[in-house]
Write a protein that binds this DNA or RNA. Structure first.
Lengths: 265, 265
DNA sequence: CGGTCCCTTGATATTCATCAATATCAGTGG
DNA sequence: CCACTGATATTGATGAATATCAAGGGACCG
C-alpha cells in the first residue's frame, strides 16, 4: 500500500521521535529556527497514532484547535457544497501543514481524510501562537507557509478556470512528481494514493474523462499506468501538455498601463 | 509622487486617513488592537496618492516589499499563464489586503490593477513583521486575514470545479452584494467596476456567456441591469440559483469512516 | 469463490466556447 | 452639438469539449 521508498530517505523510528531528527524539517514548520527553539516547538507537538485509510484527520465543521503536519502517508482536504456534493481542495504529502483555513473562523471549513495509512503531528494552535511570540522565526515561517498555500490555491484557480482536461491531468501528475521528488522519492515513478474519482473531483472533471486521459497518455507513451502506479516516460512532453508552450510568456502586455505604484521591478 | 508623510502629528490630511479614524477598521488589519498600538501601526503605513483606472498597484513579478490595504475603489488581482493569457484571481474592495501571496517567494506571483480610481495604504512588510513581534494581536490578525484568504480561495475552487455558468454568476453577484453591504453600501444595488470580460475571466466563462446570463437573469426579473449598474430584485431566488438548494447539506455522509482524530466536534 | 467496488470503454447528450455580426458606450476633436 | 473612433457589450448560429448514461472488465476482500 505504501509508496516505494527507493533511497530509504525516511527512517521511521527517528521520524517518530522529534522535529530535530525529522527528515521533513526542510519542508515543514521548524524550517529556519534554532536547535533550542526547535526543542520548544517539539514539546508542544503531539504525535498521534496512525490513521488508517478513510479515517478523518479532522472533520468538516469541527472546532479548530490545532494545525496538523503530515508525517507520512497522504491526505485529501475537501468541502461539501450546499447540494451535498464534495469538492476536493487539495492532496497533501508529508511535510505539508493542513487546517490553515480554519484559523479565521474557528472551525474547519474543510474536512481532511487519510488516503492511505497516515501519521500526523498535531500542533495546538494557541500554544503555537504563544510560541511564535517568543520565536520570531516561527511566526515568519508560519506566514510563509500560509502564503505558499494561497499561491498554490491561485495556481489551482488558473487550472480550473483556463485549462483543458488534458492540461489539468498533466499538471496534477507533474505536481505530484515534483513533490515526491522533493521528499526524496522518485519523481518519475510513484503511487497514486487517491482514486480516479478523487482525481476527477479535484480537477473538475468526470471520472470517465480522467480514465480516458490516462489511457490516452499511455497510448502516447507519455506515461505507463498500472492501476495506481504511475511511471512518467517523457517528462518534457508532459510539461508541454501541461501548458509549457515554450513560447516566452509576455509579462507586461499592456503598454498603456501606468507604472506600478508599489516598488521597483 | 510621495504620499503625505504620516509622521507629522497634526496634519489634517493624515488625521483624516489614519487607521484610528478609518471607517474600515473593523474589516482591516488593525482589528482588535489597542489605541497606542494602532498609532504604531499607523506610523509605518504609507498612504499613496490615488491610482487611476488601469493603473497598477503592483506588477506581476515585482519584488515583494509591502502589503497593500485598499482604502477606496477596487482592484483586480491576476496571474499570466504560460501561454500569455490572464487569469483573474480576485476582485478586492476597500478594507481588503492584497499581496499576501508574495510573502513566501519574495516576489509577486499576481499583479494588481485598479478597476477604478483607487487609494491604497502601503504596509511595508518587514516593518509589519517587526511590529507584530511587539503587538501580539497584530500577528494574530494577520494570520486570520491570511486564513480567510485561503478559505475564500477554496470557495472559488468549488465554484470553478463544480458549478454551472448560472451558479457562478449568481454567486459572484451575491458575493459582491454582501461585501458592499458589509461596507455600508446598499447590498441590493451597486456598480460593477469590472468589465464583462473580467467577470468572464474570473468565473472561467466566455464573455458572451456572461452577457447572455445577465440578459437571462434580467428576463427572469432576478436583477435589473443598466450597463454596469446592478439592482438585485429577488435575493432569495438568486441565492437559490447560486446553489442554496434549501435542502439540508448532509455533512457526514460516510458512516464507515473512523472518528476524527483531531478534536471534539 | 463470489461479491463489491473501482475502473475502463463506447454511445449519446448537453453545456458552453467560438465565430460572426451588430449595437452601444466613452472619449476626442471638429 | 455632432461625427468619428475604438473599446465594450449584446445577440444569433454553429461546433467542440466534456458530462452523462450504459455496460462490461478487473482488482481486492472476505
Amino acid at each position: 500500500m505504501n509508496a516505494p521508498d527507493p533511497q530509504k530517505p525516511i527512517d521511521l523510528r527517528s521520524v517518530k521521535t522529534a522535529c530535530g531528527t525529522c527528515s521533513l524539517v526542510q519542508l515543514c514548520l521548524p524550517l529556519g529556527i534554532g536547535k533550542d527553539d526547535m526543542e520548544l516547538l517539539n514539546s508542544i507537538i503531539k504525535r498521534r497514532r496512525p490513521i488508517s485509510r478513510n479515517g478523518n484527520v479532522f472533520c468538516l465543521g469541527d472546532n479548530f484547535h490545532a494545525l496538523f503536519a503530515i508525517r507520512s502517508g497522504s491526505v485529501k482536504t475537501y468541502t461539501i457544497t450546499e447540494d451535498g456534493s464534495e469538492q476536493i481542495t487539495g492532496f497533501h504529502l508529508p511535510g505539508e501543514i493542513i487546517g490553515l483555513d480554519a484559523i479565521s473562523s474557528g472551525y474547519h471549513p474543510c474536512g481532511a481524510k487519510a488516503l492511505e495509512t497516515t501519521s500526523v503531528c498535531e500542533i495546538p494552535f494557541e500554544r503555537l501562537e504563544e510560541l511564535a511570540e517568543t520565536i520570531p522565526g516561527l511566526g515568519r515561517q508560519l506566514l510563509r507557509i500560509m502564503s505558499r498555500e494561497i499561491q498554490s490555491d491561485e495556481e489551482l484557480l488558473t487550472l480550473l478556470g483556463k485549462k483543458s482536461a488534458e492540461e489539468r491531468l498533466a499538471t496534477l501528475l507533474l505536481s505530484l512528481a515534483q513533490r515526491y521528488g522533493e521528499r526524496g522519492f522518485s519523481f518519475k515513478e510513484f503511487h497514486l494514493s487517491m482514486s480516479r474519482n478523487d482525481i476527477g473531483n479535484y480537477l473538475g472533471l468526470a471520472v470517465e474523462t480522467v480514465s480516458r486521459l490516462f489511457s490516452r497518455f499511455q497510448q502516447q507513451n507519455l506515461i505507463v499506468v498500472h492501476n495506481k502506479h504511475i511511471c512518467i516516460e517523457h517528462l518534457g512532453h508532459l510539461q508541454a501538455i501541461a501548458g509549457y508552450t515554450g513560447s516566452p510568456p509576455v509579462v507586461n502586455v499592456d503598454a498603456n498601463a501606468g507604472a506600478c505604484v508599489g516598488g521597483k521591478r
